[in-house]
């Protein structure tokens, strides 16, 4: 059974149908790509999957449980984490503080802070494990604003991982990144794929074709194509396009 499933999701805003009958299924341990032109409904779809919007119809199943309509913080505690299209970091805080703030143990223990988190070796160790995963160990005391754009993106992924998720949703992780930073991000995602199930919205099709196990194409609020990168690349019009060269 799939770890995460969306069944026949509809989302309407008044008379405007934004999502029509979206069904998606993500197997444990796979990297899943979602692509589509601007305005196709990709981010709205993410909002529905992670509880930020309630779908008008349809069900969302995570690990066998129906999570439709549950508040995002509940869904997050169950093991569903996400990043946003725009950077969501505390710029003035250090790298490690950004991670610590997102750790469930911090949230449990420091609701009323009576001592400094920096004396809490266990918490610092947990944060270091995350920073090691995203390749930022050694930079933990720098203010997050001083990081390169690519490293800030890695830190953002670290913040998503700090919640100890089983599935991570990333909204356009390559946006704003140059060629080198995009390559680094690709190797980071390759490193994470054994530990987490990953779903990402991406505009960069080459990036997806190299990394993803499955790709769903969303257009007009619907899934218009779905398959492995090989299956999608076998399409004659894809081969005629600039993407054909990668195949």
């Amino acid at each position: 059974m799939a770890l995460f499933e969306a069944r026949n999701i509809h989302k309407r805003f008044g008379s405007r149908v934004v999502l029509e009958n979206i069904s998606l299924s993500f197997e444990e341990g796979q990297v899943n790509g979602i692509m589509g032109p601007n305005g196709a409904g990709k981010t709205t779809c993410f909002h529905c999957l992670t509880g930020h919007y309630k779908p008008t119809r349809g069900n969302i199943i995570f690990d066998g449980q129906d999570i439709t309509g549950k508040p995002p913080q509940r869904i997050s505690r169950m093991g569903v984490s996400r990043s946003f299209q725009l950077m969501n970091l505390f710029d003035d805080s250090s790298v490690i503080e950004n991670i610590i703030l997102a750790l469930p143990d911090f949230r449990r223990r420091y609701a009323q802070a009576t001592r400094s988190v920096f004396d809490d070796r266990e918490l610092l160790e947990q944060a270091r494990v995350i920073l090691d995963q995203v390749g930022l160990l050694g930079q933990e005391w720098l203010p997050s604003l001083s990081l390169s754009y690519g490293n800030r993106r890695a830190l953002e992924i670290g913040v998503a991982l700090a919640a100890n998720p089983r599935i991570v949703f990333l909204d356009e992780p390559t946006s704003g990144l140059g060629a080198e930073a995009t390559r680094q991000l690709a190797s980071l995602i390759n490193k994470l794929r054994s530990k987490y199930t990953i779903v990402m919205i991406e505009h960069d099709m080459r990036f997806l074709f190299e990394l993803a196990d499955t790709i769903s194409v969303i257009h007009w609020g619907q899934v218009i194509a779905q398959g492995t990168p090989d299956e999608l690349q076998s399409n004659k019009w894809v081969q005629r396009s600039a993407l054909g060269e990668v195949a």
Partner: peptide
């Protein structure tokens, strides 16, 4: 747009 490959997905749809 012949560059991005979406035509094929749209036609299949």
């Amino acid at each position: 747009n012949t560059q991005d490959g979406y035509i094929g997905f749209m036609l299949d749809f």
